[in-house]
C-alpha cells in the first residue's frame, strides 16, 4: 500500500489525449505586455519630449542588439526579436529619468540583458528582474545622472526639478502640498501623470489600464499588484510623519514607480513565485520594503530595490509554499 502511494507521489501523472494546445507563446505574451505598456510610454514621450523618446529608442535597440550578440556568442537559437528583449529595454527606459544621457541608458540596457539575463542562462533562468538590475546598476554607477530630473511646471506654476517623493524626502509634506497647490491638485497631478519622475512611471491612470488589460488577458494575476500597492498604502498611512495614522496613503500609492513596479515588474513570470499564496507573500514583502525605504531609507524611492530583494527569496517561497497534492493529507 505504502509503495503504491510513493509511486503515485513520485511519478508525474499525465492524462490521456486529446490535449488543448495553449494559444500563448512566449512571443505573444511579451508583445501583449509591450502593448500594455505602450500608452504610458507614449504619454511619457509627449510629456517629457524628445529626450524621453531618444532614451526609449536607444534602450530598446541596445537591449535587442545585446540579446542578438550574446545569443550569437553562446551559439544558441536567436530569439532577439521575440519581444522579450524589447520588453526589457522598454521597461528599463520607463523607469529612468528622461534627462539620462542616452549612452548610459544603452549601457544599462546591455547590463540588463548580458549580466542579469544571459549570465544566468537566458530567458526563464534569470533570478532577478533584468530591467531592474539594469536600473540598479545605473543607479550605483551614475547616481547624479539618475537623479537629475526634467524641469516642469506644477498646476500652481511652481517650477520644480524634483520628483514628488524627492520633495517629500528633502523638504517635507507641507512643502509638497505647496508645490502642487493643495491635496486634490496633488492627487490629480499624480493620477494624470502631470508630475516629475521617470519616463514611464508618471501616468497612473494609463498604467492601471495597461495592468488591467494584462489581468484580463490572464497574463498576470491581480494578487501581486493589488496586495503590493495596498501594503504600501496601509504602512505609509500607519507610519505617518506626525505619529500613527497620519500618513497620506493615496499619495504614496500613486507616487514614484510603485504602480509600474507592482503591475509590470513584480509580476514578471520568471522572477515571481508560482503559487498564488506565494505571490501574496512576495507582494507583501515588496510592499513592506518599499515603505521602509521611502519612510526611513536614504533614497526617496524603493520599489526597484524592494522587488530585487524579494526576487532573492522567490525560490525559498516556492520551496515553502507548495500546493497540496490531490489525495494526500493536509
Amino acid at each position: 500500500m505504502s509503495a503504491q502511494i510513493n509511486a503515485a507521489e513520485t511519478l508525474l501523472s499525465v492524462s490521456t489525449a486529446p490535449y488543448i494546445k495553449s494559444e500563448d507563446t512566449v512571443s505573444k505574451i511579451m508583445w501583449k505586455v509591450n502593448l500594455a505598456l505602450a500608452p504610458a510610454a507614449i504619454f511619457g514621450v509627449i510629456y517629457f519630449g524628445v529626450p524621453a523618446l531618444i532614451n526609449i529608442v536607444v534602450s530598446i535597440i541596445a537591449a535587442v542588439a545585446a540579446e542578438y550578440a550574446v545569443q550569437k556568442i553562446r551559439k544558441v537559437r536567436i530569439t532577439a526579436f521575440d519581444g522579450s528583449a524589447f520588453l526589457t529595454g522598454l521597461l528599463l527606459a520607463m523607469c529612468i529619468s528622461p534627462e539620462m544621457p542616452p549612452y548610459m541608458t544603452a549601457i544599462g540596457s546591455a547590463i540588463a540583458i548580458v549580466i542579469a539575463k544571459h549570465s544566468m542562462g537566458g530567458l526563464g533562468q534569470n533570478i532577478f528582474n533584468p530591467a531592474h538590475i539594469g536600473r540598479a546598476a545605473l543607479m550605483v554607477s551614475w547616481p547624479i545622472a539618475m537623479t537629475t530630473w526634467s524641469t516642469i511646471k506644477t498646476p500652481v506654476d511652481a517650477v520644480t526639478s524634483a520628483t514628488p517623493l524627492g520633495i517629500l524626502k528633502l523638504q517635507g509634506y507641507s512643502e509638497l502640498l505647496e508645490t502642487f497647490g493643495g491635496r486634490s491638485e496633488l492627487y490629480k497631478a499624480l493620477f494624470l501623470g502631470m508630475r516629475n519622475g521617470s519616463i514611464g512611471e508618471t501616468c497612473t491612470v494609463l498604467l492601471i489600464i495597461g495592468g488591467l488589460f494584462l489581468v484580463w488577458k490572464k497574463i498576470i494575476n491581480w494578487q501581486i499588484p493589488v496586495v503590493m500597492i495596498a501594503t504600501v498604502g496601509v504602512l505609509t498611512w500607519i507610519f505617518g510623519p506626525e505619529g500613527f495614522f497620519t500618513g497620506d496613503p493615496v499619495f504614496h500609492m500613486m507616487a514614484g514607480g510603485l504602480i509600474i513596479g507592482a503591475f509590470f515588474m513584480a509580476t514578471d513570470m520568471v522572477t515571481a513565485p508560482i503559487t498564488k499564496r506565494g505571490q501574496i507573500i512576495f507582494a507583501i514583502g515588496a510592499g513592506m520594503i518599499t515603505s521602509l525605504i521611502r519612510l526611513k531609507g536614504g533614497y526617496p524611492e524603493g520599489v526597484c530595490y524592494s522587488i530585487l530583494l524579494m526576487n532573492c527569496v522567490t525560490p525559498l517561497i516556492d520551496l515553502v509554499i507548495k500546493p497540496r497534492i490531490y489525495g494526500t493529507g493536509r
Binding site: 544621457p101 548610459m104 549601457i107 549580466i115 550605483v140 554607477s141 551614475w142 547616481p143 545622472a145
Partner: peptide, 15 residues
C-alpha cells in the same frame, strides 16, 4: 568619460 562608480564599489569587483 563619466566614471562608472560601480567599478570602484564592491559589486563591480564581484562582477
Amino acid at each position: 568619460y563619466n566614471p562608472a562608480l560601480i567599478m570602484i564599489l564592491p559589486p563591480g569587483a564581484f562582477l
